[in-house]
Design a protein around this nucleic acid. Structure first.
Length: 564
RNA sequence: UGGGGUGUCGUCAAGCGGUAAGACACAGGUCUUUGGAACCUGGACUCGGAGGUUCGAAUCCUCCCACCCCAGCCA
């Protein structure tokens, strides 16, 4: 079971469970379940629920089932089932042999429905969908009772069997619970329990043409699996009376407690399956696993670690408040984990040629560089140095602004793990004025320490040897939306898509040692951020890196402030 | 104007009648061959508002206000 180094979580749900344990409500058992509908990929919001459900099971020594809530064949598929299984496992959780499908319960659910009909608690209604809607009433007015409400039990039974047998058109009849059309809770106004739907189910094929609704299937699936705590999101609060009503009428031996918590909202992105599907199908992203997506598949490809996501889920807490969690917390958790795990390496994103004039042509030497300055056990690597190097364009300025202490004409800078160099000349493009090459001299004394006269050189920049580095493509990702809450913009959230959410740099140079880096492996490019070998597009011949997250950039803040 | 929920720092979130945890973000600083990391420091004179109970209230009571959810044969 996955471990998280965060402080032991406690929340109102665990308090409720503690109380149940004290009162022996469930004979000391704790059984939860994570019940996704396989009609889309899991996202970070689901991760919160996964961590909660599996976390609680682990905390109390109970169990957590993985259950596909596949009661509506339209939109569900095996691809989604497989992705969900893969994602939950990747997140670090284990459900043993307890992978279940609501669709496996179809026969039993049907029998429960028959039982309900026999008890006079459900009836076949032959109103159209429109008529049912019209008669449901409004928020302030009660609904009208269906003319079919008092059909004899035998007739209901017969009709329901015929519904199952496929003797009616889609929508001709539905099975409804007989509760209270005047209930102030609209959910209780004779809710539909079964509908006729001639759609092939990805698992049951055409065996069924009637399918149970969520309210009917969910509580009974929970009961069948002997779940004790059925944890769901706030929007199901109104459904709890129905959840309880169905289980009460059927007199089942296991009646779980439904508990609702607030779903996660994350700033600068969207976390609704419908919106994510839209981004995918309309081609705004390359797929469910596009590294910009808040899906687990996307985050995995981007390079986020499961540990970081689990820590994040622990830190955001669980409560009933509507929330919009700042994405910087997620990024913080990712940096925190990667800072410890990721080996350091040097890479130049936008190369600027640097010639060390006083370094002998054809000479080459190697520096031993620690893979992690704070963790010697991660070892060292040898990085070649020569007369011609590349540095990042950002690390040289013709007219340096205040407080800039990188390379500039006449200035000195430390090449990380190497010499101090001084800029003596620059070559500009005669037409554009762009600096295309910088000439420096190096001080051979400074290989392992300060200059002999002891003067300070503040700037440290990263570099690679021109002849001893390898090319790479690097993909820089920015938030998908420039506004904190694109959802408040409702229907036209697509208008707020950040057109610059992906920037591809194709002429980067990285240490040659990276050539053997396996897909998915993560590194810190010193001073830049954390990068991950793309698992889809990278190859031995053509390295492709995804920028997972930048390092905290104090200089960006300073220069931003200076500009103002 | 029915019902169900929720309101504590910019954002999350503890707090459960004894005098406002923590995290992220932010702002200062120390240190530093990553302007990284680490480490220090600062911040709610107050808990949606107003009354009330109490020696004492974010916690209990009353009223008010704001926001979210519900009128799919989706989940």
């Amino acid at each position: 079971m996955a471990q998280t180094n965060a402080s032991p979580p406690s929340d109102f749900i665990r308090e409720i469970i503690d109380e149940h344990l004290r009162s022996d409500r469930f004979q000391g058992r704790v059984a939860t379940r994570f019940p996704p509908e396989p009609n889309g990929y899991l996202h970070i919001g689901h991760a919160k629920s996964v961590c909660l459900n599996f976390g609680i099971a682990a905390h109390y020594g109970g169990t957590c089932n993985l259950r596909m809530d596949d009661t509506d064949p339209s939109g569900e598929s095996l691809e989604y089932v497989e992705s969900i299984i893969n994602d939950v496992r990747w997140l670090g959780f284990d459900w043993g042999d307890r992978l279940f499908f609501a669709s496996d319960y179809f026969e039993r659910l049907f029998q429960f429905a028959v039982q309900l009909i026999k008890a006079g608690k459900a009836y076949v209604c032959s109103l159209s969908a429109d008529e049912i809607r019209e008669q449901r009433g409004t928020l302030t007015e009660p609904g009208k009772e269906s003319p079919y409400r008092n059909r004899p039990i035998e007739e209901n039974l017969h009709l329901f069997e015929r519904m199952r047998a496929g003797q009616f058109e889609d929508g001709a009849h539905v099975l409804r619970a007989k509760i209270d059309m005047a209930s102030p809770n609209i959910t209780m106004r004779d809710p539909v329990l079964y509908r006729i739907k001639r759609a092939a189910h990805y698992r049951t094929g055409t065996t069924w043409c009637i399918y149970p609704m969520y309210d009917f299937a969910h509580c009974l699936s929970d009961s069948i699996e002997k779940i004790t705590h059925s944890i769901c999101t706030l929007e199901f609060e109104n459904n709890r009376p129905l959840y309880d009503w169905i289980l009460d009428q059927l007199n089942v031996d296991c009646h779980p407690q439904q508990i609702e918590f607030a779903r996660l909202n994350l700033s600068y992105t969207v976390l609704s399956k419908r919106r994510l599907i839209e981004l995918v199908t309309k081609g705004y992203v390359t797929g469910w696993d596009d590294p910009r997506m808040p899906t687990l598949a996307g985050m995995r490809r981007r390079g986020y670690t499961p540990e970081a996501i689990r820590t994040f889920c622990a830190r955001i807490g669980v409560a009933k408040n509507e929330n919009l969690v700042d994405i910087s917390l997620l990024e913080h958790c990712v940096r925190e984990d990667l800072n410890e795990q990721a080996p350091r390496v040097m890479g130049v994103l936008r190369p600027l040629r640097v010639v060390i004039d006083n370094y002998p042509e054809g000479q080459r030497e190697e520096f031993e560089c620690p893979n992690h300055p704070q963790n010697p056990s991660m070892g060292v690597r040898r990085v070649p140095f020569s007369r011609v190097l590349y540095i990042d364009r950002e690390d040289f300025q013709k007219n340096p602004p205040k407080k800039y202490y990188r390379l500039a004409p006449g200035r000195e800078v430390r090449l990380r793990y190497s010499y101090i160099i001084k800029c003596v000349r620059m070559v500009e493009d005669t037409k554009t004025g762009e600096v295309i090459e910088v000439h420096c001299t190096y001080d051979p004394e400074t290989r392992n320490g300060p200059p002999s006269d002891g003067h300070k050189v503040d700037g440290v920049i990263h570099w690679v040897s021109a002849d001893h580095s390898v090319p790479a493509e690097v993909r820089l990702y920015d938030r998908l939306f420039p506004v904190a809450d694109p959802m408040t913009k409702e229907d036209d959230f697509l208008k707020y898509l950040n057109p610059k959410s992906l920037e591809t740099l194709s002429s980067c140079r990285v240490e040659r040692g990276l050539l053997g880096a396996g897909p998915g492996s993560r590194y810190q490019f010193e001073r830049l951020g954390y990068f991950c070998v793309d698992s889809v597009d990278s190859s031995e011949k053509a390295l492709v890196f995804n920028r997972i997250v930048t390092l905290r950039d104090t200089w960006a803040k300073i220069s931003e402030k200076e500009k103002r």
